[in-house]
Design a protein around this nucleic acid. Sequence first.
DNA 1: CCATCTGGTTTTATAATGCAACTACACAAG
DNA 2: CTTGTGTAGTTGCATTATAAAACCAGATGG
Lengths: 161, 161
Amino acid sequence: MVKRTSFENDDCPIARSLDAIGDWWSLLIIREALFGSRRFGEFQKSLGLAKNILTVRLRALVDQGILKMAPASDGSAYQEYLLTPKGRGVFPILVALRQWSEEFDDHPDEIATILVDKEKGRPVRKLELYSQDGRLLTAADTALKPRPGAKSSRKLRSISA
Amino acid sequence: MVKRTSFENDDCPIARSLDAIGDWWSLLIIREALFGSRRFGEFQKSLGLAKNILTVRLRALVDQGILKMAPASDGSAYQEYLLTPKGRGVFPILVALRQWSEEFDDHPDEIATILVDKEKGRPVRKLELYSQDGRLLTAADTALKPRPGAKSSRKLRSISA
DNA sequence: CCATCTGGTTTTATAATGCAACTACACAAG
DNA sequence: CTTGTGTAGTTGCATTATAAAACCAGATGG
């Protein structure tokens, strides 16, 4: 039984996020949704992915509470896919991915877009991580601590259910 | 030919990042590396993944300049895997994934660790995105603009080479 | 009422993932 | 020098995911 090693029972929050949105298409679907796409056909055309896969991905995102389905909006008797707050919460992840690419990609000249603030139209700053007392932190300034009331799910990896 | 749709020629920086580190294990390997792992066996034991897969992942990360191999360090005639600056640059992505999980996961009580600042030992703040003139931005305050000198690689998706 | 659009499902293929077993090498003990 | 132990892989299947393309049913539209 191989079952694509699920991380949903792992105690690492990064692994848990990856289990939810760490596949090839989910983040791009959420990107499109944040950018305004709502309809099956919109996602399919803008991403260029096969419809069967889009079907599966959309359903999974809805199941996880990242998207929700709404009955219509433009009159047509169809439905559309809208982001939930959980879905909109993915935004910083997308920004982090974008900025990593902008900073380290070998061919930054092929990047077609820049993220700007709507009001001034100027590029945004890099994401910043602060301590509670307002110091700017790098990776080296941080550490991991066990969470006080951790339920210790004892590394249940690869549980496949 | 199905070929797992490569995004490396896409003009979206998010897609490009995903192409590099968007698989299930790469980010976790980088997490372990940031946390101090250096040796093949360390990665293998802490992540619990099959050795053949670790082999492939490590090689890919080295090829992409995210890890580099160094000859030794503890005398033993083996080698170790160290993060490059590009690899350390992944840190904000991991923080964003962690914080998304902390905020939206259905079972936050199963999360075992918290990220703290080393100096005070207190949890870090949420990642923050600022405009150049210092305003705190949300997704709704941002927009995408075409990059001035964009080389327009015309949506070359699924190129498989 | 025939054509077309939307939002899928089905079929069939290829590719990725995973476990387990095996190899190769270094070094140390006996 | 032979056995043992740990490291760092490779090889061989089995299972699963992903993809393209064909198909299909219910609106919409002329």
